[in-house]
Design a binder for these strands. Structure first.
Length: 466
RNA sequence: GGCGCGGUAGCCAAGUGGUAAGGCAGAGGUCUGCAAAACCUUUAUGCGCCGGUUCAACUCCGGCCCGCGCCUCCA
């Protein structure tokens, strides 16, 4: 079955292939670095990571651009309050974002681009929109006139010509012809950082930033553009209006949007204050893999309610997979081959792949893996899993972990070294052999206090960090 | 009000017009110096509610109720 994605533009499941058949050109709206991003933001970035890895597993090359918005109202306000340049203010948050992403094992986009490094191109785009009659100036700022773009609303499927009764549109705050017109270029106010431009000193609006950088690196029509659902309107709608007004060509072939991470039934957000940063959760002793698993195990188009119970469940689920892998790699197995078992593994891999092909159905993909783990464990217990079956099973785990990336534990900082632990385990095994169980138990206890759990088996003692 | 997503076991969560995946948690059992791990059994006569179509619907159609999101910066 072919790879299929739900396209927000058409509201349908569509077969996907890059326009050139080989390289997927995709753009992701990255963070605005005015503070730490929270794990709700990371839900979307984790989805993009699953997307990247799946595309590559299908043999495509990637040219993925992620922007960093490093000039914006909150950044300017906070930087000015602290007497810092916007560069100095954003630097730490940008680095923290990269660090947190790496901690969650998110691949870095092929190109990470900064808004402040593309101002001339944005100025040029605004000027070009002006010369083609899409803009107007008001109070020093330049606005995009929505009425000049007939397709406006096609992504969010809203008819903006009608009334907006009930919507909280505060018209008074703006000097715009139409409440939905949006700013392309913000005129400088006293003391604010600004760049020179034909339309007056100022700074770019958020929307033009993404259009310009996306098309500059990826061409006039992108294969994929992703973000959270809250960006559908107005951000992505505005990107379409600007971009297509500039080029006359479709801006994006496939729009993919991730649903929100919820907390106690509400969207996790800075403004509600109900958010956790990655650091908050790591401080509570959870491993990054558990967080990654939780964020990715629920398909991206479904709202995901974040709970610590959910994190506990994720931790246990990963542990089950790791235990199976340990057994697969270490247990002595009867010689030979069990053809049925190889076929079983092959079916699991096929199911895993086709689930991901189906709009990245991670929950279904995981089910294929866990079902195989149960069957393989059962076969091992019965002596029906043979030496030569290892290969196919390892292949499944490899396919799985190329996407989910949770099997390798994150190395603990500090604490006992592997060598020290091995020594204690060896000593305990000597004590066990001598039937000195008191000594053996005290070593078990000692290691447990260090966060090390022991599991005895016929093949020896396995240890793992809690 | 408009647009969108969703309501499946204690929790999380797949799914199909033909009789409910998977994970976590719980209970009982096997194994075990201890402890784990693993395995087995067990936990939804029912998939928000009401109608309709059908031999058959959780799955299709109609209506309704509820939750969430967007419509303002926002992943």
């Amino acid at each position: 079955m072919a790879l299929r994605f739900h396209n927000t533009l058409t509201q349908r499941l569509e077969e996907f292939a890059p326009a050139d058949g080989k390289t997927v050109r995709m753009y992701t709206c990255g963070p605005t670095v005015y503070s730490y991003v929270h794990i709700g933001n990371f839900r979307t970035f984790a989805f993009q990571d699953i997307l990247r890895r799946t595309l590559r597993a299908r043999g495509f090359l990637l040219d993925h651009v992620m922007n960093i918005t490093d000039v914006e109202d909150k950044i300017i306000r906070n930087a000015m309050e602290r007497g810092l340049s916007i560069q100095d203010y954003t630097k730490g948050y940008t680095e923290a974002f990269f660090q947190d992403s790496a901690t969650l094992r998110l691949e870095k986009a092929e190109r990470v681009v900064f808004a402040t490094e593309h101002i001339p191109e944005m100025v040029e785009a605004v000027a070009k929109l002006g010369s083609s009659g899409h803009t107007y100036e008001s109070d020093g700022s330049t606005y995009f006139r929505i009425a000049s773009f007939p397709g406006y609303g096609k992504l969010s499927h809203t008819n903006l010509g009608g009334n907006v009764a009930g919507a909280r549109v505060d018209v008074d705050e703006y000097e715009k012809d139409d409440a939905r017109d949006f700013v392309l270029w913000k005129g400088q106010k006293t003391g604010e950082p600004a760049w020179d431009a034909p339309m007056g000193a100022g700074r770019p609006g958020w929307h033009i930033e993404c259009s310009v950088m996306a098309m500059m690196y990826l061409g006039q029509t992108l294969d994929i553009h992703t973000g959270g659902v809250d960006l559908v309107f107005p951000h992505h709608e505005n990107e379409i209006a600007q971009s297509e007004s500039l080029t006359g060509k479709p801006f994006v072939r496939y729009w993919l949007h991730a649903e929100h991470l919820m907390v106690e039934g509400k969207k996790m957000s800075k403004s509600l204050g109900n958010f956790y940063t990655l650091r908050d959760i790591l401080d509570r002793g959870y491993a990054p893999e558990a967080i990654r698993f939780l964020l990715t195990a629920t398909p991206y188009r479904k709202q995901l309610n974040f709970t610590f119970d959910g994190l506990d469940a994720a931790r246990s689920a990963i542990e089950r997979l790791r235990s199976f892998r340990w057994r697969l790699l270490n247990e002595k197995l009867p010689a030979g081959d069990n053809i049925a078992m190889n076929e079983r593994a092959g079916k699991a891999i096929a199911d895993f792949d086709s689930s991901l092909d189906d709009d990245l159905n991670t929950a279904d993909a995981l089910a294929a893996v866990f079902e195989f783990v149960r069957d393989a464990n059962t076969a091992m217990d019965a002596g029906e899993f043979r030496e030569s079956n290892r290969h196919a099973a390892v292949e499944l785990l490899t396919s799985f972990d190329e996407i989910f990336k949770v099997l390798e534990p994150t190395a603990a900082e500090g604490g006992a070294s592997d060598a020290e632990i091995e020594e204690l385990v060896a000593e305990r095994n000597r004590a066990k052999k001598a039937k000195d169980f008191g000594r053996a138990d005290s070593i078990r206890k000692q290691l447990l206090d260090l966060g090390i759990v022991l599991e005895d088996s016929r093949e020896g003692t396995r240890w793992k960090r809690k």
